[in-house]
Design a protein around this nucleic acid. Structure first.
Length: 416
DNA sequence: TCTGGGGTCCTAGGACCC
DNA sequence: TCTGGGGTCCTAGGACCC
């Protein structure tokens, strides 16, 4: 048996942990640049605020209901996530961290609703984060159980313990709410009369294989309690690493774009070194504002293949800038820029080139030193000149909460 | 005025090989 | 004049997830 533990309204809940004033009040968290709603407390959901809705469209609602708004504070959410995962992992032998707010726990040894309730209580008490628990024989069914736990139970814990119960639940479970069925597939299924999870389960497998993909067949099997997605304990090496941001204000000048691309490239390089990986390709992309219909649209993308795998900041930044220069056009106004490093390999398995002229040992020592300084003194204390000092392309974050757990100056003081 | 960021997996089709 | 069959690898694009 597998338990899916999912944090409720995770980012909104994180904001509440150190700010009890907003308990039981509507809370929303916005994406970068304070653009869209990416998390809502139950009270905010009840007001009809939708996921992904642009913040500017909510102005009236926000004022009328006194909604508490926050810019994303990933330092806080990342740290609280770690705490939640630590509490849960101590409870089981095997656990897979699926996302920042979800994990699959192995309940094979002993599965019961009581065990779910106990873990839920402990996480709540030790971290302040509310969770819901779905327990079932497969991941897909655990997702269904988790959904039911969150929406239809008081305890926030739900377990599938017999086929009769599974069948009854699937009969009223919408097919589009299944894990792995997105908008397009749901439309396709409804067109042939499949509206519920039960109808999907009983549908002809060959049809599913033809019209969905192999994952459609796996999904179907999992609904019949056959495990196709086992719990994966070891963290896989990332295959791609992407750093991209929209600009606070739009940019036209190449020099400013260089600062942005240079910074994103440097971030990618740092992430690569954290993963102990090297990349074989560097891609960069730009995009204009797709919402400005009258403006000229231009979304170039350039991939550069490398001869020698690298995670050296200077080399990656230099290559990215070269790519930028090759796609830049001065008659467009840009809204977003990004860098992707791909074809990633473990850093100890890199293949050298006969014609390589770089002193890689020396570069490695520089990077180690820079990483060390930035880890202890603060992000970007040491950076490359091309990253600039300009704040022009930086994010808009007007409602940022304190980093209660990761910055000394932000730690709460208790006055006795 | 203002519209996010970071991933994975799968498939089709092209290029190439014998 | 007639022009096969079987395979691999790579990439772009689609769909999905949180």
């Amino acid at each position: 048996m597998i338990a899916l533990i999912d944090c409720n309204n995770f980012y909104a809940s994180c904001e509440r942990v150190f700010n009890p004033k907003i308990e039981n009040k509507p809370v929303i968290v916005l994406s970068n640049n304070d653009g869209c709603v990416i998390a809502r407390s139950n009270e905010a959901k009840a007001l009809g605020i939708k996921m992904g809705e642009p913040a500017f469209k909510l102005k009236n609602l926000i004022e009328r209901y006194n909604i508490n708004i926050f810019s994303t504070n990933f330092a806080l959410y990342g740290d609280l996530s770690k705490r939640v995962m630590n509490v849960m992992s101590a409870e089981v032998d095997k656990m897979e961290i699926y996302s920042i707010d979800e994990a699959f726990l192995d309940f094979t040894d002993y599965a019961s609703k009581e065990r779910g309730i106990a873990i839920k209580k402990k996480v709540q008490q030790w971290t302040g984060i509310p969770v819901s628990v779905g327990i079932a024989p497969t991941k897909v069914l655990a997702k269904v159980a988790g959904y039911i736990a969150k929406k239809h139970t008081k305890a926030g814990v739900f377990m599938f313990n017999d086929e009769g119960l599974i069948r009854r639940a699937l009969n009223v479970f919408k097919v589009e709410d299944l894990w792995g069925i997105g908008r397009k597939t749901a439309k396709k299924l409804k067109a042939v009369g499949i509206h519920t999870a039960l109808q999907f389960r009983e549908c002809d497998s060959n049809w599913i294989r033809r019209h969905l993909s192999i994952n459609g067949v796996r999904l179907q099997k999992e609904l019949y309690e056959e495990v196709c997605y086992p719990i994966e304990v070891t963290r896989k090496r990332k295959q791609n690493i992407c750093t991209a941001r929209s600009f606070g204000t739009e940019i036209k000048k190449l020099s400013k774009l260089k600062e942005a691309i240079g910074s994103h490239a440097n971030t990618c390089a740092t992430k690569l070194r954290e993963e102990k990986s090297c990349c074989n390709s560097i891609s960069i992309f730009l995009s204009t504002n797709p919402f400005k219909l009258q403006a000229k649209q231009y979304n170039p993308y350039k991939v550069i293949q490398l001869d020698v795998p690298t995670n050296d900041s200077m080399e990656i930044v230099k290559t990215a800038i070269k790519g930028l220069e090759s796609i830049y056009r001065d008659d467009c106004i840009y809204k977003k820029a990004g860098v992707i490093v791909g074809r990633i390999v473990p850093q100890e398995q890199t293949q050298l080139s006969l014609f390589d002229s770089l002193d890689r040992e020396k570069r490695k020592r520089i990077n180690v030193a820079v990483d060390k300084i930035n880890a202890t003194m603060g992000k970007n204390k040491v950076k490359l000149a091309v990253q600039g000092n300009g704040r022009k392309w930086k994010l808009k974050q007007e409602k940022l909460s304190p980093c209660y757990t990761t910055r000394f100056t932000d730690i709460l003081e208790v006055v006795i």
